[in-house]
């Protein structure tokens, strides 16, 4: 039974990892841009959620606002800064986004202090339900349900809408998309903001589970990279499968070998890379 409990935890965790990684993956797919500030957007989302809750904004409001504010900040950063460096070597993408991540992290510490805090789950979801012989927190069930709906919407956006088609076409050839009359600059900004907003949302959703602390961004960035490496760059389905895999492995290991839970996901990554260098669903 403990395994079922941990499996549920793993699915919840894995869906958050998916939200985090799919943004990174889509940004890379379209912009060929590796975003080391992705973890910082997650961090910012978590702290904004925490702050908005403290100001008395309801949980739903905090969740939505946190995601929107992070997306807006990302859009500004993309237009003002990143746009200028897309054509440079990826070394400069990494330097600039590491700089950006450092700045966001330090600003968070200046505003909210270096010590972490716990974040209360919304009142309606503080209860627990019986799952067989186990008591399972309602909030974690809500996270699973909410992220599942979100994943479905996202799939529809990427596969079923014109924007999604343009994004997918853009990741094949940006020049062709521009020639067809689409403003690639605006699409780039939109996709970057969407990816960052998803990371912010993942942070906001994670806050009541793990609390907030200024260094959660670095940790999240590394996990997002693992998910993308395992799932394959630019793949929605890959991010979903790998996110769930990483979440479940980490949760089950918490029971089997608590000290090695984090170690396990990196070992899983090495195993996948050894067998399939492109990741589970990566393209050539």
């Amino acid at each position: 039974m403990i395994y079922l409990f941990q499996l549920m935890n793993g699915i919840g965790l894995g869906m958050l990892y998916f939200l985090l990684a799919v943004g990174l993956s889509v940004i890379f797919g379209l912009l060929h841009f590796v975003n080391f500030a992705h973890g910082a957007f997650y961090l910012l989302g978590a702290y904004l959620c925490y702050a908005l809750l403290q100001y008395g904004v309801g949980f739903w409001g905090a969740l939505v606002l946190a995601a929107i504010i992070v997306a807006a900040i990302a859009a500004v950063v993309e237009t003002g800064l990143l746009k200028r460096i897309y054509r440079l070597d990826h070394m400069y993408h990494i330097v600039a986004t590491i700089g950006l991540a450092l700045m966001i992290q330090e600003i968070v510490i200046i505003v909210w202090g270096p010590v972490g805090s716990s974040v209360p789950a919304p009142k309606a979801l503080t209860g627990a339900i019986m799952l067989g012989h186990f008591i399972y927190p309602e909030y974690r069930l809500f996270v699973i349900g909410f992220t599942a709906v979100l994943a479905a919407i996202l799939w529809w956006v990427l596969e079923g809408t014109r924007l999604g088609a343009v994004v997918r076409a853009g990741s094949e050839s940006t020049d062709m998309v521009s020639l067809l009359g689409y403003d690639i600059n605006r699409i780039n900004t939109a996709v970057f903001a969407l990816g960052a907003g998803l990371a912010g949302l993942a942070g906001a959703l994670a806050a009541p589970i793990r609390g907030v602390d200024p260094f959660m961004g670095v940790e999240a960035l590394a996990v997002a990279f693992v998910v993308v490496v395992i799932g394959g760059m630019g793949s929605y389905t890959g991010a979903l499968i790998a996110g769930l895999l990483v979440g479940i492995v980490q949760s089950l290991m918490t029971t089997l070998w608590p000290a090695g839970a984090s170690l396990a996901i990196y070992i899983a990554m090495v195993l996948v890379v050894l067998v399939m260098p492109r990741g589970l669903l990566g393209r050539a």
């Binding site: 890379f28 060929h32 590796v34 990826h90 990494i94 590394a222 990279f225 693992v226 993308v228 490496v229 760059m233 000290a259 090695g260 984090s262 170690l263 990196y266 070992i267 990554m269 090495v270 890379v273 050894l274 260098p277 492109r278």
Partner: peptide
């Protein structure tokens, strides 16, 4: 040898993931 099987950004991400692997090895 393991990381150069991929190029560009993928290579960077692999080496970063290895860095995390060794960090957690030392930590564990």
């Amino acid at each position: 040898a393991l990381s150069i099987r991929r190029q560009g950004v993928y290579f960077v991400m692999l080496t970063l993931a290895f860095a995390q692997l060794f960090y957690f090895l030392a930590y564990t």
